[in-house]
């Protein structure tokens, strides 16, 4: 006990430790790793989008400063504008085409497995909050999707 107190006094004074004391300190650090887990689990909050937009503005000014190859820049800008326009058109077209998923969906391997599990939970909860339907497993099948041959005869929409 006294030795332990001596060690603690030394630690507080940031004094040099003997080999035995260093070993003891390593053991103490090992045994206190659960406290480390508490710190590890502290949440990290994303800065808000305004903050990010301000940062982007500052960075974009800095990014342009050393580059003065006007000709190339203009050409590149043109490409970017055309590219962005194409992307925008593509996005609009794509948005208008509803996705028909197969039952066994592949999630793109763009993040690690653990991140994707959590994202899957978050997305399915959100989907059920907004969509009314919870039978997300049967949203469609691998077979040909419905073509509208059997229209419903109910007059529900008359009441609209």
């Amino acid at each position: 006990m006294k030795e332990e107190q001596n060690l603690i006094t030394k630690l507080k004074g940031e004094m040099a430790l003997s080999a035995e004391e260093s070993t003891e300190l390593d053991a103490l650090l090992d045994s206190s790793s659960s406290i480390g887990n508490v710190i590890r689990d502290l949440p990290h909050e994303e800065p808000n989008l305004v903050w990010r937009s301000q940062l982007n503005e500052k960075l974009s000014v800095l990014a342009e400063k050393p580059k003065r190859r006007i000709g190339l820049w203009k050409w590149a800008s043109g490409v970017v504008v055309v590219g962005a326009a194409s992307l925008a058109v593509w996005s609009v077209v794509n948005t208008r085409t509803p996705v028909i998923a197969t039952t066994n969906t592949t999630i793109a391997d763009s993040t690690n497995f653990e991140d994707q599990l959590m994202q899957s939970h978050v997305e399915s909860a959100a989907a059920m909050d907004v969509s009314s339907a919870y039978a997300l497993d049967v949203v469609s099948s691998k077979e040909t999707s419905y073509t509208g041959e059997e229209e419903w005869s109910t007059s529900d929409l008359e009441s609209l």
């Binding site: 630690l11 507080k12 040099a16 430790l17 300190l25 650090l29 480390g36 710190i39 590890r40």
Partner: peptide, 30 residues
């Protein structure tokens, strides 16, 4: 160390103290 999982040596060079001091401080902080 505990939140960012930096190694003792990396923390030592960041803060400018010996590795032993990093360990002492970590223990006291915990």
């Amino acid at each position: 160390h505990d939140a960012e999982e930096l190694a003792y040596e990396e923390i030592a060079s960041t803060v400018g103290v010996p590795v032993g001091t990093v360990k002492s401080r970590l223990f006291l902080a915990r």
